[in-house]
Design a binder for these strands. Structure first.
Lengths: 111, 111
DNA sequence: TTAATATGATACCAAATGGTATCGGATGGA
DNA sequence: TCCATCCGATACCATTTGGTATCATATTAA
């Protein structure tokens, strides 16, 4: 359905990419700066950055021969929303559980 | 680092698996019931359910020859926590932006 | 008992993924 | 100018992933 949500979740599925996001939380970094912290080549890090960009989780600013990568706050919204849908479900489940305990009669999706 | 968080994010990376989770929000389903809604074999659905179980997002109850799959509320906690870390970051960024506008002097991680 | 059903298990396949190696082009500093 | 460096692009490789096909097993209903 939603290709942006899909790319966002896909970007978060790799531990290296989640690590990159946490490092970017301290400010923007170039590809070379990020590569220092990982046991892989610059090209591999660059690939991860492309996936993160496709997921809308980072933005890029090119200055001279350097490429600065930074977090994109908006990109996290679809993911947070998707998770929140389930939070609402937990609340309903707890409400149902409360009903079951108090009224000894089940009404909700637990059947 | 955290293998459980990793398995959780990996489980959410596939659109079929996210679809399964949303269907399970309406109550538990057997493998055959879930398979009706997808254009793939029962074995493929079963594989997705294994990944979801590895991620701690679902639990399983076997009754006779049927296998009932249901959501596991606890499994979503690590993912929500990880996302929340960035929400806090956005708040800080907004605070910094406010400082910049009001005091015309930058203090935070934007350098 | 017998047949239909719901699943488990295994082998297998094509495509995506994560990674390296290598070449080349711009840019910045001495 | 000259060279180091930061990056883009491409080709290539091994592994993982998403999926099918097939056969075996256990359970339920008639």
């Amino acid at each position: 359905m939603d290709i942006n949500t899909q790319n966002g979740f896909r970007a978060l599925a790799d531990p290296t990419r989640r690590d990159i996001l946490q490092r970017l939380a301290c400010g923007e970094h170039t590809i070379a700066q990020l590569t220092e912290h990982f046991d892989m080549t610059r090209a591999a890090v660059r690939k991860h950055l492309t996936v993160l960009s496709d997921g809308g989780l980072i933005t890029t600013r090119v200055s001279g021969r350097e490429r600065f990568n930074a977090l994109d706050p908006n990109g996290f919204a679809p993911i947070r929303d998707w998770i929140n849908f389930f939070d609402q479900f937990w609340d309903n489940q707890l409400t149902n559980l409360k009903d079951i305990i108090e009224n000894n009669d089940r009404k909700g999706p637990l059947q």
